[in-house]
């Protein structure tokens, strides 16, 4: 199986590569469109600020490539947010895969949310064998509200989307690569799709 982690200069990709290694697979890091198109599974990571990450995607032409992909694609954290229509962070237009606008948590809660919270209303092959209310690790200030693409919810002031899915596109707001054995199981489910 050929696994590509899209390397566009945004974020902590080493941790994802290592997590995949721990599951017994190898992933390559690439920003080459041909290599990405030829992969069986694609991971679209992202840590940092939305507008500069989107800028980097545009510079490498990946903003047109990603929505056209036919194989399973998993966006993680900011990667998931950039797959949405729009994010308030840096007033940024996203890839428009998930039909939802990402907004900032209001000040009723501490921002960023940092730590382990629970996922519920699980509704995707990503969560095969995962129990309701398992804990996953999150660190973020912006969130995707609940939408028709929501396949997992978490509560932090409001109930919001911690996972989205539309066809071959998957996104998790949490970090499966940092979510202990639960996260590894979810990552493995993705690789087995």
């Amino acid at each position: 199986m050929k696994i590509v982690i899209i390397n566009y200069g945004a974020g902590n990709i080493q941790s994802i590569k290592f997590a995949i290694q721990r599951l017994g697979y190898e992933a390559i890091l690439s920003n080459d469109p041909e290599e990405i198109k030829a992969a069986d599974k694609i991971i679209f990571p992202g840590v940092g600020e939305a507008s500069s990450a989107m800028h980097k995607l545009r510079d490498s032409g990946l903003d047109h490539l990603i929505p056209e992909l036919k194989q399973p694609v998993l966006g993680i954290c900011l990667g998931m947010q950039l797959m949405c229509n729009y994010t308030e962070e840096g007033n940024t237009k996203g890839l428009g895969i998930f039909d939802v606008d990402v907004i900032r948590f209001d000040n009723q809660v501490k921002v960023p949310q940092i730590g382990w919270n629970q996922i519920e209303s699980l509704d995707s092959p990503l969560f095969e064998g995962i129990l309701e209310k398992e804990h996953i690790y999150l660190v973020h200030s912006y969130y995707a509200p609940v939408t028709k693409n929501t396949v997992a919810k978490t509560r932090y002031g409001v109930a919001y989307s911690t996972a989205l899915q539309k066809g071959n596109f998957y996104g998790t707001q949490f970090h499966p690569e940092k979510s202990s054995v639960v996260g590894e199981k979810i990552l493995k489910n993705f690789l087995k799709l």
Binding site: G11, N12, Q14, S15, F18, A19, R22, V47, Y137, V139, H175, E177, K178, S179, S180, V181, G183, E184
Partner: peptide, 26 residues
């Protein structure tokens, strides 16, 4: 497979860049 933070003597963007690239979360 859990998050970790690295501290001690960090004083520049370059320091942070290397640590985050290598897999530190914070």
């Amino acid at each position: 497979n859990i998050p970790f933070t690295v501290g001690g003597g960090i004083s520049s963007i370059e320091d942070v860049d290397v640590l985050l690239q290598n897999g530190a979360d914070k």
